[in-house]
């Protein structure tokens, strides 16, 4: 038997679904899988989760430059270096199904050269996409219609700011760690956020009105291997990692989906009021948004990527798998 040392890491702790799944879907089954296929190689894992090797704003560089052999790459924090992986931040209200979303992104990354190039350019081998649950509103005031957002200060990740334009809300930018504080002090009156992120931070305590808006899930990047490390891995290891990468992608998407439902239920049990935004208001919201799809396509094309083709393909792939978008973001092209 020969040991292959591999460092796997992430900027977040294993309590987060897309990191915990690295353990359950990649690290734990790997050696059994190698054994089952009759390989003489075994992986000697070194796990460095929880940001012990690098912070959230360095996930791309850390894998790109070999600080770790493989790890979760948060494309959502790299709008400049990985614009194509961030397509779902420009296409809200397309799908609320995390599994469907990673299937679409995996398919596109497998078959579209421009998407592959985005990983290769950064010395990365893509194994599988990662995803967030769908976004809802947590507010300090009840939201019965879109009009209730008029003039309210809503905090969210900077990338979500555009989603609020046209709603009358004032977008305040803030990261997860600061949101509780911002709402407790009144700097913000609500947040647009994923429930799996909101619950551990107890945001429902300071913003107990949970309004299900379903702006849709967003893929966030994915699991990738440093290309130099990849080159030194034996073929058996590569085969197993490719398999497990895909299982990780689909598996954690299911975890995210289940966790989303569970967490909403917990919030309600702990005193939050959970209501749904009426369909007509959702439609009004999405119709009132600027043409985010076109903005994205223009930006991407100015950097030389076939933005229009990717956007059209994205909308088609999503619908083919059963998504029912509230707006066709490729319509304005």
């Amino acid at each position: 038997q020969e040991q292959v040392p591999i460092t796997i890491s992430a900027s977040h702790p294993t309590t987060v679904p897309w990191v915990g799944a690295l353990q359950t879907f990649v690290v734990e089954p790997a050696n059994a899988r190698l054994e089952a296929m009759g390989s003489d190689y075994r992986i000697e894992w070194q796990e460095a989760f929880g940001g012990s090797l690098y912070d959230f704003n360095e996930t791309l560089e850390a894998v790109e430059e070999g600080l770790t052999d493989m790890g979760w790459v948060g494309a959502l924090w790299e709008p400049s270096k990985m614009p194509l992986q961030n397509i779902m931040f420009a296409t809200p209200f397309v799908t609320s199904d995390p599994v469907l979303a990673v299937e679409v992104l995996n398919e596109m990354n497998d078959t579209m050269p421009a998407m592959q190039e985005e990983w290769e350019k950064h010395n990365l081998v893509f194994l599988g996409a990662s995803v967030n649950d769908t976004y809802h509103l947590l507010t300090q005031f009840p939201v019965e219609s879109l009009d209730d957002l008029e003039g309210r200060k809503i905090v969210g990740a900077p990338a979500l700011g555009p989603w609020l334009s046209g709603t009358g809300a004032i977008a305040v930018s803030g990261g997860l760690p600061s949101m509780y504080q911002q709402m407790q002090t009144g700097v913000a009156e609500g947040t647009i956020i994923i429930p799996t992120g909101a619950y551990p931070l107890r945001l429902h305590e300071v913003a107990p009105n949970v309004t299900l808006v379903d702006t849709g899930v967003t893929t966030t990047g994915g699991l990738a291997v440093n290309a130099d490390s990849w080159a030194r891995f034996p073929d058996d290891v590569k085969t197993v990692l490719k398999e497990l990468g895909r299982e990780y992608s689909l598996g954690h998407a299911q975890v995210v989906k289940d966790r989303h439902d569970f967490v909403l239920q917990k919030m309600e049990e702990e005193g939050a009021t959970v209501t749904s935004l009426p369909d007509a208001d959702k439609q009004r919201w999405v119709d009132g948004l600027p043409d985010l799809g076109k903005t994205w396509v223009d930006q991407v094309e100015s950097a030389g990527a076939p933005g229009g083709e990717i956007m059209a393909r994205f909308m088609a792939e999503a619908q083919e798998r059963g998504a029912t978008p509230l707006r066709d973001w490729s319509a304005g092209l």
């Binding site: 400049s80 990338a159 555009p162």
Partner: peptide, 16 residues
Amino acid sequence: QEAEFFGAIGAFTAPV
């Protein structure tokens, strides 16, 4: 060379 920026497309961007 890559005109790298930070911020968010559609909201605010500045060169790195």
